[in-house]
Design a protein around this nucleic acid. Structure first.
Lengths: 334, 334
DNA sequence: ATGAAAGCGCTAACAG
DNA sequence: CTGTTAGCGCTTTCAT
């Protein structure tokens, strides 16, 4: 069936434990032995059985990542980043798609908890209470990605900065009345981004028209929001994310409103397809792969250091970068 | 740390082996004992340790899925499908992104093999020989997704049908000279799709202009291909996939060629964003989630039945569906 | 129907 | 530096 450590031991003429040590990064073995064991292992195609190892070390060598929806390229990107970094650190990763469902997010965490060393969690739908309660149950460290919560380690993007840049950019182009189409109100992300907008609105340089909240996918809800934007007299619109921005543009185009000549549109996330759209989308670039890698690194740092009870785990905030493309333009002089 | 079977045993006043039997679906225990054990397990919040179980049963309860690039929504969709079905069947899934690299595809398979019950493999970059050699090594069942290979179970889409539909659609719109921009020549997928095109080309109803092969992402290579298409005198183009189609459209637009008025474009895959683009993309819809589910089901069927040596494992071919949107139109009368 | 014992493949003491 | 011993948590003979 599978080549075990005993067979390698026999082939190398040593004991199983010596093989174990020779293959461990910090095992105390002579260089000669290590080489001989390594050769035998390679020749036999030995793959250590992580389950057996985990049984004794308490480490599974597995990481988990939970996202609300893999169909959203934003999260696919995150999975890719987590996976790449984890591989670099010798860990395999379980991916769980929670289907934008609060219950499934909880389920996924509980199921995973006993099978991984730690979890990178993107769970915008979970309430703070649920999040907190869960920390008691799963004894595995969790790093929140794109969500900040007291008592949790996290990696987030500075959305106040991002939204400020977006609105400043539009202001510089002459726009004074700007619509904001928000995301699902119950999600942390939507609240965070809306807060970013409000922070700027308070400055009074531009007038913000708040247009409800839409589901972050391309559908009827967005169509309605687009019509509201059109009726509002705004000359530019910032969308909750790129997908929503695409939906708005599609509707504007259908209504004969040209982007960016008659309406500037700014998305958020900078998913890969943002640059491929017509017109290419100006958007608030949120770090994805980078944030994912940072989250994994944070997880490993926590795994490496015994957590002091009561201490606030590290929270890392990454910068955003406004990516100016073709969907924004100077307001037309009349 | 974690509640083990011994603690449950003690709490229920029975032996560990009885707990094991009581909790197994087909364990031979008296109803009373089972109930008592169940109660104790629930009370203590017992979660069986899959690693320990797997060590003895040889089943891990894990599945693996390997894709060439999670950033391509096509594969993200597949991961989502695999994950959803696996969860329904009580399995967690490892995802591995091979970064469009043949070596990493092989690595991923080997690494995973010892940790999963089976693998859903999307590996367009692997050669047939590598694939075959690998089957000898990993004793775990593999289901090929969107690739067919003798000796392997597989789930694929009928690309001859898909390409036929695409070209028939364009023919009906009056197009007679149609370009085809192919994908990376070394990949199975590109060969398969090109073959689909050739099957129709042989019928002689339309003239096919074969335009090189491009990497399936939005970049300079596509720009060049778009220019070749423009110079070829074709009035329509079929692209290897939707991403390439987006790239072509972008270049056409930049060159002042209107889509679909002056150039019809057909993509392939029907990724979620195909319908959100401007214009919305006409594309050959390839089953993704459906194929992913079928692959998982096939994997479980194989796991459930002892494989007969030499027998050709099942190969399932799914239909495609042409999705007509706004990027194709009747040729303009002159 | 239940308990005792023997490992699955591996690592971590403990000797030597 | 290396071999021997003893399990990790669980299932599975084999007795009873």
């Amino acid at each position: 069936m599978q080549v075990t450590i005993r067979e390698v031991a026999k082939a190398a003429g040593v004991s199983p434990s010596t093989v174990s040590r020779a293959l461990a990064p910090d095992g105390t073995v002579s260089a000669v032995t290590r080489e001989r064991v390594q050769a035998a292992a390679d020749r036999l195609g030995y793959q250590p059985n992580r389950a057996a190892r985990g049984l004794i070390t308490g480490r599974t060598g597995h990481l988990g990542v939970i996202v609300p929806d893999l169909l959203n390229p934003f999260f696919a990107d995150i999975c890719k980043g987590v996976q790449a970094r984890a591989r670099g650190l010798g860990h395999a990763v379980f991916v769980s798609d929670a289907e934008r469902d609060e219950g499934l997010e909880l389920d996924a965490i509980r199921t995973m908890a006993s099978e991984v060393d730690g979890i990178v969690l993107c769970a915008p739908h979970l309430s703070s209470e649920e999040l907190r309660s869960l920390d008691q149950i799963t004894q595995r460290p969790i790093v929140l990605l794109h969500r900040k919560e007291p008592g949790f380690a996290s990696v987030t993007a500075d959305m106040v900065e991002g939204m400020t840049d977006a609105l400043t950019h539009l202001h510089a182009l002459g726009h004074r009345r700007i619509a904001y189409v928000g995301g699902p109100r119950s999600t942390w992300t939507a609240q965070e981004r809306a807060a970013g907008i409000e922070a700027v609105a308070d400055s009074g340089k531009v007038e913000i028209v708040r247009v409800g909240s839409v589901a972050p996918h391309f559908d009827g809800g967005i169509t309605g929001a687009a019509d509201v934007v059109l009726a509002s007299g705004a000359s530019a619109v910032v969308a909750f994310n790129d997908i929503v921005a695409f939906g708005l543009i599609s509707r504007f185009t259908a209504r004969g409103v040209r982007v960016p000549e008659e309406m500037s549109v700014v998305g958020c996330d900078d998913i890969a397809l943002a640059g491929m759209a017509a017109p290419p989308l100006t958007t608030v670039g949120v770090p994805k792969a980078h944030a994912a890698r940072a989250a994994v690194d944070l997880l490993f740092r926590i795994l490496g250091t015994p957590s002091e009870a009561g201490a606030q785990p590290p929270q890392r905030v990454l910068p955003t970068h406004l990516v100016v493309r073709g969907s924004t333009a100077a307001i037309e002089p009349r």
